[in-house]
């Protein structure tokens, strides 16, 4: 494996880890709200969250490119925050949007499955809402957090279209494994492509194995 390949793997892991952590942080309150609210905003917000599931990644990438670019409507802001396209930070933002439903939906399902009763019990045992969330909801939703992390991470590793649109192909900055494979194929370097593609294949298999195990365990418990 070349230094470039290793760089791409390292970048991919860094990106997926960061995106997963940020999504867990932001996705938890969003999923909690979606699971509990009776607001009329619930349905449109849920649909918005689910959009990346059906939208071609290139479409998302295209709009993000326009939106975040220096000439875009948020150009001033993105420039100040360093979230410009063709930067690692921009790639993180795009990946977060792209993987959002893969984190929010398992969390939302896990929260909904808990139901209101354990929280009511906790409140009658003097636990404040935050206390209840920490000591009742989080432990009960643990399988949901595991699914959300694994799916969010894996989905970010597998992204291609969005990266190409908004990240480009800058070594060690935005050139992730999927793009590197594409480059190898373009250059007819099938042997190099095989190694990386095989890695991703194995990775995906292991991820699904973990998820299945996890789900089986929940059923058994």
């Amino acid at each position: 494996m070349s230094a470039e390949d290793l760089g791409a793997i390292w970048l991919t892991l860094k990106l997926a880890t960061l995106v997963t952590l940020l999504l867990l942080l932001l996705g938890t309150p969003l999923a909690w709200w979606l699971a509990r609210t009776r607001s009329p905003w619930k349905t449109p917000i849920a649909a918005l969250v689910a959009m990346p599931l059906v939208l071609p990644p290139t479409v998302m990438g295209f709009y993000l490119l326009l939106l975040l670019g220096p000439q875009g409507p948020l150009g001033q802001l993105t420039q100040a925050l360093g979230l410009l396209p063709f930067s690692f930070a921009g790639l993180v933002l795009a990946s977060m949007l792209y993987s959002l439903p893969f984190v929010v939906q398992p969390l939302q399902n896990a929260f909904a499955a808990i139901g209101p009763r354990p929280l009511e019990v906790a409140a009658t045992l003097r636990a404040s809402p935050w206390d209840s969330f920490r000591h009742v909801v989080l432990p009960l939703a643990r399988p949901g957090f595991i699914s959300a992390s694994v799916l969010g991470f894996a989905h970010t590793v597998g992204e291609f279209g969005v990266v190409l649109m908004i990240g480009g192909n800058i070594p060690d900055k935005t050139r992730v494994v999927s793009v590197q494979i594409y480059d190898h194929v373009e250059a007819m370097q099938y042997a190099n492509a095989h190694v990386l593609a095989g890695c991703l294949l194995l990775f995906s298999f292991v991820v699904l194995l973990i998820l299945n195990r996890q789900q089986r365990k929940i059923v058994h418990d």
Partner: peptide, 28 residues
Amino acid sequence: THLRPLGYVFQEASLFPHLDVRANLNFG
């Protein structure tokens, strides 16, 4: 509710499934 000094027993026991009996008792 959590600031009212009351105890509540629900129709179904509603024990916390992630805790054993001792930890359930200790919760409040």
